[in-house]
Design a protein around this nucleic acid. Structure first.
Lengths: 212, 212
DNA sequence: CGCTTTCGCTACGAGTCGTAGCGTAATGGC
DNA sequence: GCCATTACGCTACGACTCGTAGCGAAAGCG
């Protein structure tokens, strides 16, 4: 999602291959150098394009990394595993797999940090990264209500609040586990998360992972 | 927690006032400039010390900001409000108040992002920031078990896993709500979080905020 | 074929980095 | 009180990155 051409349609079109090469080079540089040591000149060299070409398409490091990281989340899907608990576990494990990649780890948190002082950047993150994740929560909840696993919510405002809350809890928990606690969000941990989510803390933690 | 003097105890001691001034100047610069535009030269000028003095005490920007942000979390306390739900709400609201400050918003996520490529930095964050937060979960859980609000857990390994999980869920949810969704973690939201945490998603969401 | 836009390249001033060197100030040991 | 030791403020330095400008060449569209 780089800057569009000024207006007209005449003249030499921008190379789509350059876009892909630049984004791939950005992810590669994120893996090798991390956020703070990543320079746009280095990315341009890796991508085999001139630095000026890069600046014509992206306003700066923030926007470039957002787009490079956003592509990692394209593969997120909502599987139908038959019941809500299994659906949650499936999505969370996909999300954890993406956060396991070093380019996502260093890139995502860095742009979120920058977005605290840049509303436009925050909106860009919301549209290209967060919105797709949240849609999965919305669909999963609707599917669970159709199955009768969750009570229906007639008030649309209450429903929106509930989706927002669930989204922040699930995504926040996985991110915190992966990046702050720095421990793997593996199947056992995801089972525990799902149990808390569905039954609350009061439920006994059976050693088999099943319900109390 | 800056670098200690080489070894000896003779000679001019380091100014404790300089430490405090530098950390305060770092927070001030975080508010005004954010993480990426914060420079150590600027911090030194604000603190009224020479740039070389700053470099003698901290290895770099990362370590400095960790220490500056860590002081913000010193005020976290576990209030005794009589029941688990109220205790959770009290702590979460304190945590949310800290994350509402701009120096915490931009500083915390930035150092977490950098820590993904720097194990020593991650350990520094864990000791000076995360450990204090997690202790509150540990104490709150023990208190709730003593009250009979939570079932006791005889296996210490299971108990540790449970505390880790709760911590990641609560802290992650608040951070995600505040920094990614960029909406306030106010009393209403915290009530919803507490209800999910204690009773799970299946519970009806009463409009009065009380239990189903 | 001409018009338009992109592309690669080079060069530039500005700013930051982290370090070194120097003279001075503040301690503790004798 | 004197001296060794350490911290401090200041200046200066080479190296690096930034973002932009200017140029000639290349690639499409009508």
């Amino acid at each position: 999602m780089p800057n569009r051409s000024p207006a007209g349609r005449a003249g030499r079109p921008r190379s789509a291959a350059a876009d892909a090469a630049i984004l791939a080079a950005t992810r590669e540089a994120l893996v090798e150098l991390g956020w703070s040591k990543l320079t746009l000149g280095d990315v341009a060299t890796r991508a085999g394009v001139a630095k000026t070409t890069l600046y014509r398409r992206w306003a700066g490091k923030n926007e470039l990394v957002v787009d490079a990281v956003a592509e990692l989340f394209d593969e997120l899907r909502l599987p139908d595993r038959g019941c809500l608990a299994a659906d949650i576990e499936g999505v969370v494990l996909q999300f954890a797999a993406i956060l396991d990649r070093p380019e996502a780890r260093s890139g995502l948190m860095a742009v979120v940090a920058e977005s605290t002082r840049d509303p436009a950047l925050r909106e860009r993150i919301r549209c290209s990264i967060v919105a797709r994740q949240k849609r999965l929560v919305l669909e999963g909840r609707a599917r669970a209500q159709a199955r009768g696993e969750l009570p229906p919510e007639p008030d649309p405002e209450q429903a929106a609040r509930a989706v927002d809350l669930i989204f922040d809890v699930v995504a926040g928990a996985v991110v915190h586990r992966t990046l702050v606690s720095a421990e793997p969000a593996d199947e056992e941990w995801v089972r525990g998360l799902t149990r808390v989510l569905l039954q609350g803390l009061a439920s006994r933690t059976g050693p088999d992972g099943g319900p109390a």
